[in-house]
């Protein structure tokens, strides 16, 4: 299910208030099973882009094709898109509402019109996928820890069996171990289940370590679209957008400056260590 954004533009504001172009003529194509990192400063239009891709808001101009279909075409049932593109919002635990974890995860598939048996099966699979134990299934979601709540919320999306998963900063507010668990889960969904993943993150270190391709947004425009190694070569440009390089890349640049001839395109600790060892020995 490839996604194509074709000249997507979204303008906020009405007649009276000043207009802001949140997404400005963005075009790209994402193939099946890719792990995309979407980065940009707060207010660069990332979140708006995610909502456009999942059909929650309508573009001012341009459109999105999913699986070859124009999702904003007049005769297209926009409701059906929610089963194809799952979106995990920031702090998704804020959307939990049912009495039990299991019921909450059933909400999505039930809305899609699945019968009781199928719904429960989907919910069960999704809860297993995010690694929750059976004993929490019948607890109130509000009694769980922060990390668990977030998993329940993600399961609530996965239970709709989307082929494309869109996540807006899914690790915000979690501790380092919690962050890693969620990112590993997402990576697993992409690699094992073949989902296409679009991940919004503020952490360059995480993006460098996990994704296949980076989209950089600034002021509503798509400025860089490249594999991580290439994307992080644009040091000045990124800094101009208020973004930093991964910490190890910054370190490699400094190491080169003191006269040690290392390549500066390492983006993870592992790569950096290998490169330093290669040069020194």
């Amino acid at each position: 299910m490839p996604i194509i954004a074709d000249g997507l533009t979204y303008v906020y504001g009405s007649k009276t208030k000043a207009k802001t172009t949140a997404v400005d003529n963005v075009t790209f194509k994402i193939n099946d099973g890719q792990f995309i990192g979407l980065i940009g400063h707060t207010g660069s239009g990332k979140s708006t882009l995610l909502m456009l891709l999942s059909g929650l808001i309508k573009p001012t101009s341009g459109t999105v094709y999913i699986d070859g279909e124009d999702i904003f075409a007049k005769d297209f049932d926009l409701h059906s898109i929610h089963g194809k593109v799952g979106i995990v919002f920031q702090y998704p635990e804020n959307q939990l509402f049912e009495e039990t974890v299991f019921k909450d995860v059933c909400f999505g598939p039930k809305n899609m019109g699945l019968d009781k048996k199928e719904t429960e099966l989907c919910a069960y699979e999704a809860l297993k996928l995010v690694g929750l134990e059976d004993e929490v299934f019948y607890q109130s979601p509000f009694d769980l820890s922060g990390g668990q709540k977030r998993r329940v919320a993600i399961a609530g999306i996965l239970s709709m069996k989307p082929k494309i998963l869109v996540l807006d900063e899914p690790t915000a507010g979690l501790d380092p171990a919690g962050r890693k668990e969620i990112l590993d889960l997402v990576k697993n969904l992409c690699r094992e289940k073949g989902m296409t993943v679009i991940l919004v993150s503020h952490s360059m270190d995480d993006v460098a370590e996990y994704v296949d391709r980076i989209l950089v947004m600034n002021d509503g425009r798509l400025e860089i679209d490249a594999v991580p190694k290439e994307a992080f070569k644009h040091k000045e440009e990124l800094e101009g957008f208020g973004l930093a390089l991964p910490q190890v890349t910054q370190a490699m640049i400094k190491i080169k400056e003191i006269g040690i001839p290392v390549r500066t395109d390492a983006i993870t600790v592992e790569e950096a260590a290998n490169e330093i060892m290669r040069v020194l020995y």
Binding site: L56, H82, F89, F107, G108, M160
Partner: peptide, 11 residues
């Protein structure tokens, strides 16, 4: 935000 999130879950 919540309306959008629940809409995305098919509400």
């Amino acid at each position: 935000k919540i309306v959008k999130a629940q809409t995305a879950r098919g509400a």
